[in-house]
Structures are given as C-alpha cells and as structure tokens.
Design a protein around this nucleic acid. Structure first.
Lengths: 362, 362
DNA sequence: AAACACTGCTTAAACGTTTAACTAAATTTT
DNA sequence: AAAATTTAGTTAAACGTTTAAGCAGTGTTT
C-alpha cells in the first residue's frame, strides 16, 4: 500500500519532468535527482557505475535518464574534469586517399577509447594552420595529431601546443626540431627503392620532380634520389632535379620543362601521385610512349594510379598503419602526462608497387 | 612617487604570475584580475570590449592577458552562455573533391562569423552516422550540417537533432520527410540534360548505372533518366537500368554486366564519377572504343575525370556554392532560433561538362 | 540643493558536472 | 554489547566564464 503510493508520487514527478522536456529544455542530472528524490551527486555516480551506489538506485537512475532523454553535457564534465576527451587533427587536406585513410584509422582507434576527433585542414597554408591550432586549443583538446602544411617553416605555433602541456604527435610531414613523437615512412630509403627499380628497367637518365626542400620528407626524398643516382653512377644534373609544389598543374608544367630539354631523361620520379598524373598528361600530349620512351613513377598509391592508362608505379605508405600508430602514440602519451616529450620516431616500411608506367618487361 | 610604487607592486605581482605560468598551469581571467586588483567580471567585460569599462582598464587587461599568455577557456564560456560556437558536419567521406570542397566553403563562411567546425565522416555507414550524431550532440554543437550516408533509411537519429532544438541543414543527400533546410542541385533535370546530350551524339540505347534508389538524389537521377528515355522514345529496358553502390569496383562490375548483354548499349550514364572510372576500366579491358562504340558519362566533376584518357564527360555540382549556401542557411537559422524548421529547399543549377568520353564530333 | 543620470566598476549567482570529505544507518567483528 | 567496518548515500566546493543587479562617485538637470 505504502509502496504503491510512493510509486504514484514518483510517476507524477516523472511526468512533470517529461512535460518540461517537450518544452525543449534539455534535462540534466538535477532533473533526474529531483524525480528520484536523491542528490545530483548520487545520480552522477550512478551513471558512472560508482561502487558506492546500490544496484537498485543505479537501475532507477538509468531508467529515468532514458525516459527524460538525458544527454550528458560534455562541456560541463570537461570543464570540471579538466579533460575534453577530444583530439584535434590537422591535415593539409582531406581529399587525398592517404590523409583520409590516416584519419579513418586514427578515429577508429581513438573512438574505442572514448575519444572523439576534430578534423581541420590547413589547405597547405601556414596561416590557416595557425588558426587551426588556435581553434583546437580553444576547444580544449586533450592532444593534437598533425601533418604540417608545405608552407610551414616557422614552428612557433607548434611550440605553443607543446607549452600547453598537451601531447603533440606528428605524422608524414614532421620536423625533428620540435622534439615530439613522429610516425612516418623512410623517405630516403623509398627514393633508393625507386631509383633501383628504374635502373633495373634499364633507365640511364633519371629525373626527379620533388617537393619543396624545406619540407623534411620531400628533402629526404631528394637526398635519397641524389645518393642513389651517385651509387649507380648515373648522371646527376641540375636540369634533372626540379623543385615543385606537386599539384597536378605543376606536375604537368615541370614535365613539359623536362621534355623541352635537349637531352631528355628516360625516366621521371615524381614525389607525389597527383603531380605524377599531371606529368602523365604532359607525356601523352607530347606523344611520348610510357614506359618505353620515358618511365614514370609516382608516390603515395592514390587509388587513381591503378586506374589510369597506363597505370602508375608508386609507393604505398601504409596509411592505415600510420593512422593507427599515431593514435596509439597519443594514447601512450596521455597515460603519462608529466613525462617530457622527446623526439621519438616510428618509421614504417614503404612498399614499391610496380605498374605499367615503369614496367618495360611485361 | 606614489604612482611609481604602485607600478612596482603591479610588476611584482605580474612576475609572480608569469612564474606560475611557466609552471604549466594555464592562466585564467582570475589571474589577470589579481594582477590588476580588479574583479574577474571586469576582466571578462574588458576582454569583450564592454562599453562600461574604461579604455585605460581595457588596455591594461589586454596587456596583462598577453603577458600571461591567456587563452580563454572555451568550455567554460560555452557552458555559461549555452552556446558552443561549434558547428558539426557529417559527410559520407572526405576524400572526394565534392565533399572536401563543400567543407572548405562551409568553413570559410562560418569561420568569419566566429564559428568553428567539427568534421565527421560516416563512411556511408548508418551505424557510424548515428555515433557521429551522438558525438556532435555531446560536444554541444550549435547546429549540424549533414549529407546522409547511402545506407541511411531510418530517420530517428536525425529527428533527435531536431528535438534538441538546434538547426539541422542537409545538403546533396537529403530527405524531404525531415522537413528541414536542404541545399542541392536538381538531379532530375541533370539526368535529362545528360540523356539529351547523348541523344544529340546519336546514341540510341542508353543504359544507367544508378545509386541506391532509397537515396533521394539517386532516385531522382533514375526518375530523370526514365522520363528522358521516354521523352526521346528510346528503349527503356530492365537490363539497362542497374542499381549499384557506385564504388569504383562496383562500377567496373556493373559495366562488365552490361557488356555481357546480347544487345549492348551504345551509351552508359553512371551516377557517380568514381563508378564511371571503374566502368571505363571495364571498357578498356574489353577493348571497347569510347566514345565510338559506347559513350560514357559520369557525375560530380571529380578532378580526375579531366585527366584520364579518354577524359570523362560529367556534371559539375557547384560544390563551392552548395557549401556557401549551407553555411549561410545555418547562420540564418541561428538568428531566429525559435522559428520552427520547415522544408526549405535551395536548388542550384548544375552544369554538363562535355569531354572526350561522350564527344563523338571532335 | 535635490533629483537624476551616467560611468566604472563589484558582487554574486549561474551554467552542469564531478569529487573530496563527511555522515547516518546497517552490518560485522571482537 | 561496544567497537569497527561497510554501505549508500549527502553536502559543498570547484572548474572558468558570463551577466543581471547593485552601488559608489561624479556630473548634469531643474
């Protein structure tokens, strides 16, 4: 009898709050507490399965929470706990397969651990990158995983992240001077692999359309190219080594430059797939046979490289693995927050995928 | 003399706080207040250029803020104001030019108005989309701009957004039943345009590899195709109308299906560029001449369509304009928050870009 | 000179959660 | 049966900001 009347009272209170709910106002922990006549603290604990709350109460709390369509307020809990469970991501752009695959894998690993990610793109602009960093810090992210814009030389803004005491992890486009975690492939070795392959195909005059040398990875590719050329006693000439923005358009333009040479190369190694695609266009327009007259190699294994005619030989960077490692490295860092960040490189192996554009022996 | 000693005291206090700063702790409004011996409220107002704070104080506050490397805590201000100045974005994937261009333009418009965006991708998965929605609501976003996953049929999760009372804006992949703002192109008319073009090229048997019909835009493309075929008195046959996931792989597979027909089509209209690329591959492997034997048309104007051989005829969806309009629509909605959301469609014109894959008259 | 308005602040509460510290009651140990 | 421990909560403060309301002191109006 008594129990019944209590239930009636509870139901009444509940329906009152349900009415309030339909009036738009979001329900809070306090509303749940009022319905059940317990303290907000108890509700909070119940929702977090604290051991000091009885199973009966926990059940009741969860039921009422559902009925009231309760959604925890992330801002409040993040403010109180000093932790947002958000991780910021900065990439040059998202519309390449490499970056979008990295992102996908970072997301997968971090979501499982209760983190959500905020993606921002720099569009290769230093200024945009700085504003992205501000945005992310402003959102109180618990850490930042980034791949630097081509333009970026000044590291002050990245130092700002470090000075906030949150983990910074770089991938692909990194920078030793920042002394933080880095995940990437061995660009120097990859260049060696490519030159070796071209030599095997009988090429004797190998050109390189590389990226800006102030970007570490592109510089390393250039270095690898230079050393490999020397190793095989091939001609290393200024006119065969070109610095480029590596856009489709610039790839085309630079290839036209090479075709205009008196002494044309018989192979061209382009440091990015999109630029290689542009180069391929220039070759086609000039009616140069690929690979017979000039062999072509790209970098990055973008999906289209397998689909164009001729298909383009390229390097697979294992984007999925890079994403996973970056996420795991972040998780490792937040586990030991007071540990000072140091230069810590994880270098993954890259894989040469030989396709028609450089395969003379098919 | 007195002024001087005050300055000395202030400097002392300032240096004490600067020391604290190097000890990692982030500085707050309170720290600034303590340095200047004013209330935190005054500091807050000074930072927001409130008219009731003297210019002298404002200057002093801003100077100390800079010295202490003060960064406002977004969580706290969002919590207090009930507004996060974050806008959530949900896209099927970011690695297509269409979506990444839309994103870029949304970002551009919203950044100018003080909003930052959180990008999430559904990978065409309904389940992932739901969890994305939860993530965004959890982050207390002020609104959501979304393009639905192919898989999505159940609209409960989107209703959840509406029930939170925050604006929901759909683009490209929308749904009338939700009764919200929508920005997109006229898919029905676009199909007409394509069929008309193919008829002009002399094609008499036009096939369509379309997307899933439960996705409104793909259904509209199918409808447009059907009506246009009828209009021009062409054969409308079941074997010429194929439903596909529109991945590269499926595009290839479905084209092989069409090639296996006794009575092959002389033109194929594929509802997405990536699938069209797969189809082109199937055509090449089968040594079918494009466009002479079979003309090919894609949809979306992805950059590679201009670069493959033969280049692919496609439809430009004006992604930049869609992004801008979506952002502006959001801004319009937040201006009048209590206004009930209604179905409000903005339909932009699309443009046929004729290239080699369907141009027989070159 | 009383009434009023304006300037430039301060006070205090609020946003929704979490959590350390406390407490009352029930149970177990001695 | 007193003491100690466990259980199941409560209380109150805190996170960093914003903002309504208040209040001196100065200046202006009548």
């Amino acid at each position: 009898m008594i129990i019944k009347s209590i239930t009636v009272i509870l139901l009444k209170r509940l329906s009152k709050y349900i009415k309030k709910l339909t009036n738009k106002k979001k329900s809070t922990i306090k509303d749940i507490a009022n319905v059940l006549n317990i303290s907000p603290a108890a509700v909070s604990k119940a929702l977090h399965d604290d051991s000091r709350i009885s199973d009966k109460t926990k059940e009741a709390v969860k039921e009422v929470a559902k009925k009231l369509n309760y959604q925890p307020n992330h801002l409040a809990s993040a403010l109180r706990r000093g932790k947002s469970n958000l991780v910021g991501l900065i990439v040059p752009r998202t519309n390449s397969n490499f970056f979008s695959s990295v992102i996908q894998n970072i997301e997968e690993v971090l979501n499982k651990k209760g983190y959500n990610i905020i993606i921002t793109q720099s569009n290769e602009s230093f200024k945009k990158e700085c504003s992205n960093i501000d945005t992310l810090l402003f959102s109180q992210v618990d850490g930042i995983i980034a791949s630097m814009a081509n333009e970026t030389v000044d590291l002050d803004y990245y130092e700002k992240i470090k000075s906030k005491g949150i983990p910074l992890i770089l991938f692909d486009r990194g920078e030793n001077d920042l002394n933080v975690d880095y995940i990437g492939i061995n660009d120097y070795d990859s260049s060696h692999m490519i030159v070796e392959h071209l030599v095997e195909q009988g090429c004797k005059r190998i050109a390189h359309i590389g990226g800006y040398r102030h970007t570490r990875i592109f510089n390393n590719r250039v270095k690898g190219y230079v050393d490999a050329i020397n190793k095989y006693n091939l001609p290393l000439e200024n006119e065969l080594l070109i610095e480029s923005s590596l856009t489709i358009e610039d790839g085309k333009k630079q290839m036209q430059q090479l075709l205009a040479l008196e002494n044309r190369p018989d192979a061209v190694y382009v440091a990015a797939d999109y630029a290689a695609l542009g180069a391929l266009q220039a070759l086609e327009e000039a009616h140069v046979r690929v690979p017979e007259d000039i062999a072509l190699v790209g970098f990055g294994n973008e999906p289209f490289t397998a689909l164009v005619a001729p298909s383009i030989t390229t390097v697979n960077q294992h984007s999925a693995e890079i994403g996973k490692q970056a996420a795991l490295t972040f998780l490792e860092r937040v586990k030991t927050p007071n540990k000072k960040q140091t230069l810590n490189k994880v270098i993954l192996g890259a894989e040469l995928i030989v396709r028609d554009s450089s395969n003379k022996k098919r």
